[in-house]
Design a protein around this nucleic acid. Structure first.
Lengths: 130, 130
DNA sequence: ACCTAATTACGAAATATTTCGTAGAACTTC
DNA sequence: GAAGTTCTACGAAATATTTCGTAATTAGGT
């Protein structure tokens, strides 16, 4: 059984929850409304479905339910990365990384940060078989 | 107008076309069948839809049509990357790259390759504003 | 208690994607 | 040239996702 990735609408909800912490439907809907038109019950329904799917958990102790994600942001990112990696890059992480950094506007600061990270990775592999 | 990403089924077709070059429905279907059960007319229909969408072009000069992709693999990879970047990584390429290289089994050879690439990128930015 | 506002539950329409059956045309073989 | 095979076109069912309207419930204010 491989992990499933959230749908687009689900990911939008998760992004708010990861940024703001446990929230009500009202709070989520207000955040999403800043980006695009979306009805309250639409957001509600998505979050109810996510709860059934096991993506969210909710506290029903007060009338206004409070939802929180059951997956860590980094785990979800990894799952989505893996899916992209396998479906579009033939499993080659280096191709993907070079595509990510290639022509686009990654800042120099970011490139420096990545290089530092990469050096760490290489350092940790001293002695590994190649 | 931002570019749209192919669906999962469409991407599977594209992957074969990019690897094998222009192909018939029969050829594509046989490749896909090695991975999973899929009916001939299912593949046909997907490819017909892709043609209407402008993802594929077909040569109808012989009875058995020959299809080819209208997008380069690298362009499609970039479009899909950008979507993931914005939807799941808040636009931060460095977070995405570190997630891609983080715990998983990228080989040392790949890491070296990426570092070389990164050095080139940094070299090309000598004098850019930071 | 009554009215209003906010909330949840639920069904269902709208849209998108995937799957496949059937019909008819075009080619092959005997 | 009849029979069988291969192909395309097309409709439609099956599935997944997104959207929203309506009804019922609860809370708060007066």
């Amino acid at each position: 059984m491989s992990k499933s990735t959230p749908t687009d609408a689900e990911l939008e909800v998760l992004n708010v929850l990861w940024a703001k912490g446990p929230s009500t439907v009202r709070e989520i809907n207000e955040m999403l409304s800043q980006e695009k038109e979306v009805g309250y019950t639409t957001t509600l329904k998505i979050m109810q479905i996510m709860t059934v799917k096991g993506l969210l958990e909710r506290d029903e102790s007060s009338r206004t339910h409070v939802y929180k994600p059951l997956m860590k942001e980094s785990d979800t990112q990894r799952t989505m990365m893996d899916k992209l990696l396998n479906s579009a890059f033939g499993g080659s992480a280096s191709k993907l990384v070079m595509q990510a950094l290639g022509n686009n506007k990654t800042t120099k600061a970011e490139l420096d940060e990545i290089r530092k990270f990469l050096d760490d990775q290489l350092e940790n592999r001293k002695g590994d078989r190649e």
